[in-house]
C-alpha cells in the first residue's frame, strides 16, 4: 500500500515535470517574450532586444524554464504587465470566487447525480454550458424576472455566498452541465454493480430491495464518483471559463479570458501551469481516496 502510494507520487512528479516543460516550451514558441507588451508598440527593435537581454528572454528555453520554476517554488509567478500586479496576487484575489462557484456546483451536481444514476431514471446528455446558460437567462431573468443575468460583482466572498438573486443562474448552469456527465458515469457503474454476485446474494437472503440499493449498490457504484471528484479538482480552482465569461463573474476563468485578449503572457503561463499541476494532483488525490475507500485496492 505504502509502496504503491510512493510509486504513484513519483510518477506524478515526473508527469508534472514533463507537462510543465511542454507547456512552458509551447507558450515560449507562441509568445517568445512580453517585451512588446511592456515597452509598447513604438519601441524600436533595439529596445526590445535590450529588454529581452536584461530580463533573460534571450536565454535558451530550458534555462528560462528552470529559472521560472525556481522562482515559482518561492511564490514568484511573474508579473502581469497589463494589470500591473504580481500574478500570484491576481490568482489569490480571484481564487475564492471560482472556488465558491465551482465548489457549490460540484457538490450539488453529485447530490443530484447519484440518485439519478442509481435509479437509471433517464439517460442525460450534457448541453454546452453557454447555451444552457443562455436558456436559463432567457427564462428566469427576462421572461420571468426572478434572478439576475449577471453574477455578483461583490469583492467580499461572504456577500457573494449570500447573494442568491445573482448567483443562482451561474450555479444552476454549472450544476446542470455536470449532472448530465456524472449521472451517466453513475448509471454505467450501477449497471456493472447490479451484475455482481454480491447483489444476487443480498437479494437471495431476502434483504428488502431498498436496503440492497442503499447498502450494496450505492456504496459500490459511488466508487467511480471518487475518481470523478478528483478529476474535477482543477475545475474547482481553475474556475469555469465559459460560465464565468457568460455571467461576467470575476473569477479565475474571466482572468484567463481577459489575459487572452490582451496577451498577458505571464498570467497565461502561470494559469495554464497551475491548471496542469492541479490535473495531476487531482488524479493523485483520486487514486489515494479510492485506495482508502475501496478495500479491494488497498489489499491488492
Amino acid at each position: 500500500m505504502l509502496s504503491y502510494l510512493l510509486r504513484r507520487l513519483i510518477t506524478s512528479i515526473i508527469v508534472i515535470f514533463f507537462v510543465s516543460i511542454g507547456i512552458f516550451w509551447l507558450l515560449h514558441v507562441v509568445y517568445p517574450s512580453p517585451a512588446r507588451a511592456v515597452l509598447g508598440l513604438r519601441a524600436t527593435q533595439f529596445d526590445v532586444n535590450t529588454w529581452n537581454q536584461q530580463n533573460g528572454y534571450n536565454d535558451p528555453v530550458i534555462v528560462q524554464y528552470f529559472r521560472y520554476m525556481g522562482r515559482a517554488l518561492t511564490g514568484n509567478l511573474g508579473f502581469s504587465y497589463t494589470l500591473n500586479q504580481p500574478v500570484l496576487a491576481l490568482l489569490k484575489q480571484r481564487a475564492p470566487r471560482s472556488i465558491w462557484l465551482s465548489g457549490i456546483s460540484l457538490v450539488l451536481a453529485i447530490v443530484i447525480a447519484i440518485p439519478l444514476g442509481v435509479f437509471q431514471a433517464f439517460i442525460t446528455y450534457s448541453m454546452p454550458s453557454f447555451f444552457l446558460g443562455l436558456i436559463l437567462i432567457q427564462v428566469f431573468s427576462f421572461s420571468l424576472p426572478i434572478f439576475g443575468f449577471e453574477a455578483s460583482q461583490s469583492n467580499n466572498v461572504f456577500s457573494i455566498i449570500g447573494d442568491w438573486h445573482d448567483m443562482t443562474l451561474p450555479i444552476a448552469t454549472l450544476t446542470l452541465t455536470s449532472v448530465a456527465a456524472y449521472s451517466r458515469y453513475m448509471r454505467s457503474a450501477s449497471m456493472d454493480v447490479l451484475a455482481q454476485d454480491y447483489i444476487k446474494v443480498a437479494r437471495a437472503k431476502g434483504l428488502p430491495e431498498r436496503l440492497v440499493m442503499i447498502r450494496h449498490l450505492v456504496r459500490n457504484a459511488s466508487l467511480p464518483m471518487v475518481t470523478l471528484i478528483g478529476l474535477s479538482l482543477p475545475l474547482l480552482l481553475a474556475g469555469n471559463l465559459i460560465v464565468e465569461e457568460l455571467f461576467n463573474y470575476n473569477g479565475l476563468g474571466l482572468l484567463f479570458f481577459n489575459s487572452l485578449q490582451k496577451i498577458d503572457y505571464p498570467t497565461l503561463l502561470a494559469y495554464t501551469l497551475a491548471g496542469a499541476v492541479l490535473v495531476v494532483i487531482g488524479n493523485l488525490i483520486a487514486d489515494i481516496a479510492l485506495t482508502v475507500a475501496d478495500p479491494r485496492i488497498r489489499l491488492a
Binding site: V15, F18, G22, A238, F256, L268, T272, A276, V279, V280
Partner: peptide
C-alpha cells in the same frame, strides 16, 4: 503528460 494539459486553455 498530454492528458494533464488543460485542453481548452
Amino acid at each position: 503528460a498530454f492528458l494533464s494539459v488543460p485542453f481548452l486553455f
